[in-house]
Simulated assay, not measured.
Amino acid sequence: MASHGSKKVIYAALAGNSLIALTKFIAASITGSSAMLSEGIHSLVDTGNQGLLLYGMRKAAKPADKKHPFGYGAELYFWAFVVALLIFAVGAGLSIYEGVNKVLEPHPVGDPTINFVVLGAALCFEGWAWWIALREFSTTKGKMGWLEAVSQSKDPTVFTVLFEDSAAMLGLFVAAVGISISHYFHIPWMDGAASIVIGIILACTAFLLAYETKGLLIGEAASDEMEQEIRSIASSHPSVTMVNELRTLHRGPKEILVTLSIDFEDTMQVSKLESVIADLEEHIRERFPQIRRLFIEAQSHKDHETVAKLFDDPV
């Protein structure tokens, strides 16, 4: 997904959450609702998270240097993982803590009218940000299912915002139900129970985000389609006998490292070999501009198999 589209999603969520957090805290202070306080904490954490994602995108855009020869693209994955930790530690932790206190020491919620007004306004803001994130994610989803698209995505910014906003809208519904039951049915502890449920929703969201970003941090290969096409480009060259091995690694959403081990014609002279490698690089980079680093190794298939067996590498 393009950086421009990712930033648009984050800015939309940042604008919405900052306004929502303020109104939720005001409503919580007036009515004494634990569910509303949890929602305020949720929106505040989300606001900070969007700031971290923007920071991660800026750091990831730094050019490669001597200390980091492959660039800083993985910075974005690191900060996305930090976002998942914050949602769990701060958002879920404080919400559950506040909810447990309210359940153990319940007290009536004040006039819930302002709470419902704030929840309605928050739903509009969150729905707007969620729709933008969903639309951006849909442009790259293609024919894949939603879960498969999230699993295959190499850009954590959009699916992080999409997960956060989905959890936020679900939390708004839980808060409304908890406040309603607490006030109209005179069951004060239900307000605290709603806060606990909101915390559990946040914890589940944090787990899903951490799981997806963990894979990106460890290092994920490019798509099968891209690898197949790179192999096809290389193997179709008349001077190539066999593609021994192809390995790809995402260093960022639009930064891919590629290594190729190729068995060329045995009779080829060095000058011709250099020309063929340059030609292959040109064709592969032209087809996939997101490939920032491309290394092609000339190696006989027999030698490649020997080395692979020696180090127990898959051929």
Rank of each mutant, 00 (worst) to 15 (best):
138 S>I: 08
226 M>D: 09
167 A>F: 01
168 A>L: 05
189 W>I: 08
205 T>I: 05
128 W>C: 09
238 P>K: 06
183 H>A: 12
153 S>Y: 03
174 V>Q: 00
166 S>L: 13
214 K>Q: 10
248 T>Q: 07
163 F>I: 14
216 L>M: 12
256 I>P: 02
253 P>D: 05
159 F>R: 00
223 S>P: 02
191 D>W: 01
237 H>D: 15
124 C>I: 15
213 T>K: 01
125 F>A: 10
168 A>Y: 00
192 G>Y: 00
157 T>R: 08
167 A>N: 04
237 H>C: 12
224 D>E: 15
237 H>R: 08
173 F>K: 01
218 I>Q: 06
155 D>Y: 03
155 D>C: 04
241 T>M: 09
186 H>W: 12
151 S>K: 14
255 E>I: 13
219 G>K: 02
149 A>Q: 11
167 A>Q: 01
226 M>H: 06
194 A>M: 05
168 A>P: 02
242 M>Q: 13
224 D>I: 14
136 E>K: 02
195 S>M: 08
238 P>D: 10
207 F>W: 12
128 W>A: 13
181 I>Q: 07
178 G>S: 09
196 I>D: 00
182 S>T: 09
190 M>N: 02
251 R>S: 07
243 V>M: 10
211 Y>W: 14
191 D>G: 09
152 Q>W: 11
253 P>T: 07
194 A>Y: 03
163 F>E: 07
230 I>E: 08
153 S>D: 05
175 A>M: 06
230 I>V: 15
189 W>P: 08
134 L>D: 07
132 I>L: 06
183 H>N: 12
240 V>H: 11
213 T>P: 00
216 L>Q: 04
202 L>I: 05
148 E>F: 08
199 G>M: 06
157 T>W: 02
239 S>I: 05
164 E>M: 08
140 T>G: 09
236 S>I: 09
160 T>N: 03
195 S>K: 06
209 L>C: 07
230 I>P: 01
217 L>Y: 03
256 I>L: 12
158 V>S: 03
211 Y>R: 14
252 G>H: 01
222 A>K: 03
227 E>N: 13
187 I>P: 01
251 R>H: 15
158 V>D: 01
240 V>W: 10
179 I>E: 06
222 A>E: 02
233 I>A: 11
228 Q>Y: 07
250 H>P: 04
179 I>V: 15
137 F>L: 09
200 I>V: 14
133 A>S: 13
209 L>W: 03
216 L>A: 05
169 M>Y: 04
132 I>M: 06
231 R>G: 15
189 W>M: 12
179 I>G: 01
240 V>P: 02
228 Q>N: 14
186 H>E: 13
244 N>Q: 07
236 S>A: 14
131 W>A: 11
145 G>I: 11
130 W>M: 06
244 N>R: 04
184 Y>W: 14
244 N>D: 11
174 V>S: 00
138 S>R: 15
256 I>N: 03
201 I>D: 01
158 V>P: 04
146 W>G: 02
225 E>F: 05
126 E>T: 03
126 E>H: 00
137 F>M: 06
161 V>T: 13
212 E>Y: 11
255 E>M: 07
177 V>T: 10
237 H>K: 05
126 E>P: 00
211 Y>K: 14
138 S>A: 15
251 R>V: 07
194 A>D: 02
253 P>N: 09
242 M>D: 10
236 S>R: 12
240 V>F: 09
156 P>W: 10
